[in-house]
Design a protein around this nucleic acid. Sequence first.
DNA 1: TTTATAAAGATAGTATTACTATTATTTAAA
DNA 2: TTTAAATAATAGTAATACTATCTTTATAAA
Lengths: 226, 226
Amino acid sequence: MFMHATLRIAMNDKVFVRDPEQTELGRSIISEGVRLIDELGFEQFTFKKLASEINSTEASVYRYFENKHKLLLYLTAWYWAWLDFQIDFHTNNVTDPEHKLKIIIQIITDSTRYNLDFLPVNKAALHRIVICESSKAYLTKSVDADNKEGLFKNYKALCHKVALLVLAISPGYPYAHALVSTLLEAAHQQVFFAAHLPSLTEVRVTDNDYTQMGSFLEHLVFKAIK
Amino acid sequence: MFMHATLRIAMNDKVFVRDPEQTELGRSIISEGVRLIDELGFEQFTFKKLASEINSTEASVYRYFENKHKLLLYLTAWYWAWLDFQIDFHTNNVTDPEHKLKIIIQIITDSTRYNLDFLPVNKAALHRIVICESSKAYLTKSVDADNKEGLFKNYKALCHKVALLVLAISPGYPYAHALVSTLLEAAHQQVFFAAHLPSLTEVRVTDNDYTQMGSFLEHLVFKAIK
DNA sequence: TTTATAAAGATAGTATTACTATTATTTAAA
DNA sequence: TTTAAATAATAGTAATACTATCTTTATAAA
């Protein structure tokens, strides 16, 4: 497919000190960073541990990212942009807004399944990071400063895109963005609950089968707007 | 009101080393802990800073809580139990399940407004902590261990209670718990988004007016189950 | 081919965090 | 009044989250 070679996710340059996509070291910071955050969790993850994994030094990692919070912001922003692209690609020639929204809910629910590129990032690990860590990217005292720098732009753009579709289906619905942000967050929460606090949800995810999640979210969204 | 003097929230004793409610120092750890976490955010909050605020020592604080994560678990568990009590109290003589659910959504939306006790905890600050920090209590690598110790029991009990009500209204609805956990989480997320990332939601909260939040959530829930 | 320069590595150092341990002092109960 | 429990005071450790400096290596323009 012709897109494979050319797809690049454009990133806000405020999130990094040096663009990690431009160098070998930068790219290994990203790919090994994804692996390690997934393995250790964000709290236990440190630049020192990352540096040792990639046979580099702490100081070198700091030349790419100010701190691990910025790395998390980078990864989550990247994920949202990537999801946005997946949505565009898979709904490109779908005209019926309801059908389109259903496809989007499927993609949000099980993003890795729709993966069509060969970017050197472990999408499954990144998806797990988004599930467990992404809300930590904004639940901080620096949220307003980070927002001012545009670091949540990708998330907001995605939310807005889907909200517009909601409004196309139901022009009078007054909470399109609220519904979509709830949808996006619930899509991760419910996977987490299914895995760790299963009494909080009927949704079960076994063998990467996200069917129940999709049903729940689709039902929730379409009942709200129809 | 007679309950004021007698209301005590029963806490799981696995969450603390020494019960903070039993001593003066313990109680100041809780009340000043709430104040400081609210002020600094959970990441910047340390036991050393807390100790200095209450004119005690780090070592003394550690005699009550193993670490700050356990303190956060304590505070959130306390909040859920307290919310559960508020719900019981305010829906005690309401028989119509739909009316009951509406009242519950109001309480979840604006818990501090329904405050009826005089427990020595700043409920407004605790509510802000729940909004900004509560998901960090479970989004950790220790979630399964913490869950095994019963540290999320209060949250699960609350979720189950509301889910049963959902099922009373709509016996065939297959996602009662998923809907309620989504509701509980959304109630905090949307307040946070309204304050910090307002393009993610139409909901606005001005002067502690949570009307729009209530409308959004009520609409979402009732459309889903009716 | 030299030479500038940018990136990365090597090393060291600091302040803070997240604890643990020990001893002394105060307080409250038997 | 004795005894025990709680707290304070102090010290110490390993890890974290950085910053600084200097050297080496790769790259590419003069």
